[in-house]
Simulated assay, not measured.
Amino acid sequence: MSTTELAWFKSSYSGSSGDDCVEVAVTEQAIHVRDSKDVTRPAFAVGREGWGQFVRFASER
């Protein structure tokens, strides 16, 4: 599946002023992340387990 076919949504932590925005798309295999200000740049994907570890780590900070 190409990244243009994914259902992207903006992070709830992104500001409403249009800067520092992150978009996420969830698939069965991975979590995809991209910069919403420049969607032509490559997105990156991480497996669900790795994403869960990242979220737990970030939540502790």
Rank of each mutant, 00 (worst) to 15 (best):
T27A: 08
E23M: 09
G15E: 06
A58V: 10
M1I: 07
V26Y: 02
S2D: 15
G52V: 06
A43E: 05
F9P: 01
V39G: 10
S11K: 12
F57D: 04
G18R: 12
T3R: 04
F9W: 07
E28G: 05
D19T: 14
R41Y: 07
Q53N: 10
K10G: 02
F54W: 14
E49L: 09
S59D: 11
D35F: 02
V33Y: 03
A45R: 09
V46W: 00
P42A: 14
V46H: 00
R41D: 11
T4I: 13
W51A: 04
A58K: 06
F57N: 07
S16N: 13
I31C: 05
A43K: 01
F57C: 13
R48A: 07
E23K: 07
A7Q: 15
E60N: 15
S2L: 13
S17V: 13
R48P: 11
R41G: 12
R61T: 14
K10M: 09
E5Y: 10
F57S: 15
S16P: 05
R34H: 07
V26M: 02
W8H: 01
G18Q: 11
Y13Q: 04
R56A: 13
S36F: 04
V26H: 03
V55E: 05
W8Y: 06
S17G: 14
V33T: 01
A25Q: 00
G50T: 00
G18F: 12
E60I: 06
K10P: 08
V55P: 02
D35K: 06
V33R: 03
F57M: 14
K10Q: 08
G15S: 14
E49C: 01
E60Q: 15
E28S: 13
T40I: 05
S36Y: 03
K37N: 12
Q29K: 04
T27Y: 00
V33N: 04
V55T: 11
T4G: 11
Y13H: 12
G50M: 00
T3G: 03
E49G: 09
G52S: 06
W8S: 07
R61M: 12
V55Y: 03
K10S: 06
F9E: 03
A58C: 09
E28K: 03
K37P: 06
S59V: 02
